[in-house]
């Protein structure tokens, strides 16, 4: 496992690509966190005259959803394209250990990328007296969120030998993971007028996404596409057909709305990200991110092992 880890690290740092990605990441993060104000509070960094890293951590999930798929895309796809995949799969090392070696190297690279943004906290220390709790908490949150994204990226990378495809699919999935929590507002509104449809959406949207994934990189593309289409049909059908009884609407809407909000709240990455960022390291949040990692690394190993039987 250590041999794989060392080799993958070398792949990150042995070429200019790793430094290029890190450089781009730092520049984008600095620009966005200085220019933007996604949290509201009056203009950009200069106008606010406020020293904090709130904006930095606010934009990180979105930037990471774009950058980290690029980090993870080559993990397996590059081997799949060459015969090195055959070598890795016939080494006397179980596949899960090979996967963990690669994953560990990518996490180390993520740490390096985060460390490269240290100029921001240094700036804080230079010009102010920052409260270090949220800064440290924010970095921890960035790391665990990034670890989840890299797990997603590595899983997708194992499905294809095309790095560009791996990148775009992982990008969509990561954006979806960040975005799904933001559906709360939309689905919550929908629950008020069409509670049945809101509940159906909760199921059909993930099914639609999975079908799309299968159609893009799976073995049975037609099945994947069919599942996606079916999800859309069911979704649209329920939306159009459902005519809630006005008498029961209020009660139904309440139940539906609560369910939707509770369910999406549970899977909302941003909620957990913010929670850790506030310096609140709850087991709930840690288990949330750990389960992302475990789920996708396991899926990764399973998908690779299943290739032996194809």
């Amino acid at each position: 496992m250590l041999a794989i880890y060392r080799r993958e690290l070398q792949a990150f740092f042995g070429t200019l690509v790793g430094f290029g990605i890190t450089g781009a990441f730092v520049v984008v993060m600095m620009l966005l966190s200085l220019m933007l104000d996604p949290l509201g509070g009056g203009g950009d960094w200069f106008k606010r005259g406020e020293l904090s890293m709130r904006t930095f951590f606010g934009v990180f999930p979105w930037v990471a959803a774009v950058v980290l798929p690029a980090v993870a895309m080559r993990l397996w796809a590059e081997d799949r394209r060459q015969a090195t995949f055959e070598m890795l799969m016939t080494l006397p090392i179980p596949t899960w250990k090979v996967a963990l070696g690669k994953y560990g190297a990518a996490l180390t690279f993520l740490l390096f990328m985060l460390a490269a943004t240290c100029v921001y906290p240094i700036m804080l220390a230079q010009w102010g007296k920052p409260d270090w709790g949220p800064v440290v908490g924010g970095y921890v949150a960035c790391f665990v969120l990034g670890a989840g994204f890299i797990a997603v990226g590595m899983f997708v990378s194992g499905l294809t030998d095309n790095q560009a495809l791996a990148f775009f699919v992982a990008l969509l999935m990561c954006l979806g993971i960040v975005g799904v929590g933001e559906l709360r507002g939309l689905l919550g509104d929908l629950a008020r007028t069409n509670p049945d449809a809101a509940l159906t959406h909760l199921v059909t949207i993930p099914v639609f996404m999975l079908g799309l994934l299968a159609a893009a990189v799976g073995r049975d593309r037609i099945l994947g596409a069919a599942v996606s289409v079916l999800a859309v049909v069911v979704n649209g059908g329920v939306y159009l057909m459902a005519q809630p009884d006005p008498k029961q609407l209020a009660e139904k809407a309440k139940v539906s709305g609560e369910t939707v909000i509770a369910a999406l709240g549970q899977i909302s990455v941003l909620e957990h990200f913010k929670e850790i960022g506030r310096g609140v390291l709850t087991t709930n949040s840690l288990i949330f991110f750990a389960s992302y990692v475990v789920l996708f690394v396991t899926l990764n190993v399973m998908s690779l092992e299943s290739r032996r039987y194809s």
Partner: peptide, 8 residues
Amino acid sequence: TPPLYGEM
């Protein structure tokens, strides 16, 4: 195909 890593 020989299983090689070109950057090594």
